[in-house]
Design a protein around this nucleic acid. Sequence first.
DNA 1: CGTCCATTTGAGGTGGATCAACCCTAGTGG
DNA 2: CCACTAGGGTTGATCCACCTCAAATGGACG
Lengths: 228, 228
Amino acid sequence: MLTQSVSTHEMPRNSKLPVEVGDKFGLIVGRACLVATEFKYSKEEEIYGENEPAEFVYQVVRGAVRSHKLLSDGRRQIGAFYLPGDVFGLEASSNHRLTAEAIINTTVRLVKHSSLEHAAAIDVEVTRRLWNMTAGDLQHAENHMLLLGRKTAMERVAAFLLEMDHRLSAAAMMALPMCRRDIGDYLGLTLETVSRALSELHDRGILDFSGARQIVLRNRQHLRTMSA
Amino acid sequence: MLTQSVSTHEMPRNSKLPVEVGDKFGLIVGRACLVATEFKYSKEEEIYGENEPAEFVYQVVRGAVRSHKLLSDGRRQIGAFYLPGDVFGLEASSNHRLTAEAIINTTVRLVKHSSLEHAAAIDVEVTRRLWNMTAGDLQHAENHMLLLGRKTAMERVAAFLLEMDHRLSAAAMMALPMCRRDIGDYLGLTLETVSRALSELHDRGILDFSGARQIVLRNRQHLRTMSA
DNA sequence: CGTCCATTTGAGGTGGATCAACCCTAGTGG
DNA sequence: CCACTAGGGTTGATCCACCTCAAATGGACG
């Protein structure tokens, strides 16, 4: 529960509100004349739980977040990873449908869901942008269903590497914030299968490691072919 | 392409516009003062293709529709089945992201995407309802990712039966419009595995057949437990 | 420098896929 | 009215991609 977290951590403070170009959160917050608050979560901390009321909408500033669903026996499916710039926790209904946790120490900007609702009720453009965001999430989910239902382990790992490369490759190097188990739970595989696939890609010269989570892609075209 | 289909079939005519309670399509169309047109597709006919411009939004009146994505080698993932009352083909962006086909002879109501856009641009409530629909699709996709990534064959089939029971059980009998291959491609399984799971459920007295696609559930609670 | 995890690697097992008959039923035409 | 056919469905036998279990390795951090 966030309100508790607020009290057990530092108090929120207003962010500088740097509305970058292409920053969807900034676009909405700015449009709606809302003030975003910064907040920090430490490694492995829960941000919100499945079925909890959706009190806030979040944007990752620094760090990384995963969202997941659990089966009663502990089997876990990660629906998405959220990296700096990504918005998460936006629900059209009143409750969150997945649990969100910080993968590493993470700073987020957040706005009250209710203020967004209020802004959306009077400004079509705000509603339109919220709809577009949800539609983007849906598109990701549709692609991921194809991956989970029909792709082989190697195809899944290749697709994962290209997705992460696209989303967080600053320089040539890709620094993965998540462990092998997280990757497996995202791809519907075990951590061992993920590890074996990465090792095979390394053996075939398609990627290089400098530490298990520091990866350099050497042949993106080959990966694209492999991801089917 | 629909315009071609229109010419090769009967001309569209205005529907009676019976705005039922709880009919989301009716709510939107009515609110936006739009006129819905009825149209028929025959068995196995394509309604729209992946990446085609999203010219229309559809609602099933009679029949059944499936939407899917294909890999280059023909592997197929069905994202959703649409049954009478369901809306499909609604995109926030300008193109369809899956292919939609009629499973059996199907009648749909449709409205121009552009008129919806126009109505949404001036009426927050319309936009809000469109957003809610997309959010509903996203929720279904999130549940389905858990199924595809983490559930066993039997759990998937049990979940499928409960979903269909919930959506199309008129009396006690459930009349499935789709073949075993469609079910398999929806659940990320082969048609043989689906058939074997159904046979086992029959042997265990959890369901009865009267024809391969006429199913009566005898123990829903047991199915609920099995679907994990 | 030792402890603790994350990761890798190995060996063997298995759930579901694949390949192959066979069966059932609806539709067709004689 | 019935024989024939075709397509969907079932069932069996075998295979294999991935999981499971186990152990070794490595890297980060006190």
